[in-house]
């Protein structure tokens, strides 16, 4: 059954997956195991996307299949046993209504075992700040597709600094308008050029973050700059 569910995610069987998941549950399979099967399916999708075997339509279809499966098992999950890689808050900046890439990142991250809160598109700067305060993410992901809205990324980082939250969260950026050099320029902690790379970036940052928390007295570069 597990293999079939994994395959349904890989192939984006949005019409069949609910039946498969229900059948597995009736069969006595634990929701947590079904989640693992779906996650391993998404890992394959993420790899296919990175190798350009899958493109946006195929990947979205898989992500939707996984979401449909998740909707069924979510109330049944034993959260103590779900390994969470980290908490990510993600959204597209104000004025920008593109969210397909950001949604892919969000779905891939969930697929990789991150807990993700997706704020949607056209998110005002203040909302990023308030949600960072409330949700306490390890990582905040900002997306901008348009050359006209990218400036909002800098605004969010400055607003986080003003609110005294900048040191509590790692900020990563992505989207057609963003770049590695822009990330450096605005003092973001990372940039990824596609959804698969974003997952790798988050995994890398979480490893480093673990280390950093052990040596709290070492100031981060931007903290030093504002000292």
């Amino acid at each position: 059954m597990g293999e079939e569910i994994k395959k349904a995610v890989i192939e984006g069987k949005i019409y069949e997956i609910e039946e498969l998941v229900n059948a597995a549950l009736e069969h006595g399979e634990a929701a947590n195991d079904i989640l693992k099967d779906m996650i391993s399916g998404m890992e394959v999708v993420s790899d296919l996307f990175e190798r350009r075997v899958y493109y946006v339509p195929e990947t979205l279809l898989s992500a939707h299949a996984m979401q449909r499966g998740l909707d069924i098992i979510r109330p049944l999950l034993n959260y103590d046993k779900v390994e969470v890689q980290g908490k990510v808050l993600i959204g597209t900046v104000a004025g920008d209504v593109h969210d397909i890439g950001k949604n892919l990142v969000s779905m891939f991250l969930e697929g990789a075992g991150f807990e993700v809160k997706n704020l949607g598109r056209d998110v005002p700067t203040q909302v990023f700040v308030e949600e960072t305060r409330k949700y306490k993410p390890d990582i905040l992901g900002l997306s901008a597709m348009m050359s006209t809205t990218i400036v909002k990324m800098r605004e969010v980082i400055e607003a986080l600094e003003e609110a005294g939250l900048r040191d509590d969260v790692l900020v990563i950026i992505g989207g057609a308008a963003a770049s590695e050099s822009y990330a450096r320029e605005i003092g973001a902690d990372g940039y990824a050029s596609d959804a698969a790379k974003a997952v790798k970036l988050c995994e890398k940052l979480m490893k480093e973050r673990g280390k950093r928390e052990l040596v709290k007295e070492v100031p981060r570069s931007h903290a030093a700059r504002h000292a």
Binding site: G12, I14, P57, L60, L61, H98, N103
Partner: peptide
């Protein structure tokens, strides 16, 4: 809308 359209191409 992009996301709908991308799925429509397959479904």
């Amino acid at each position: 809308g992009m996301e709908n359209f991308m799925l429509d191409m397959i479904t």
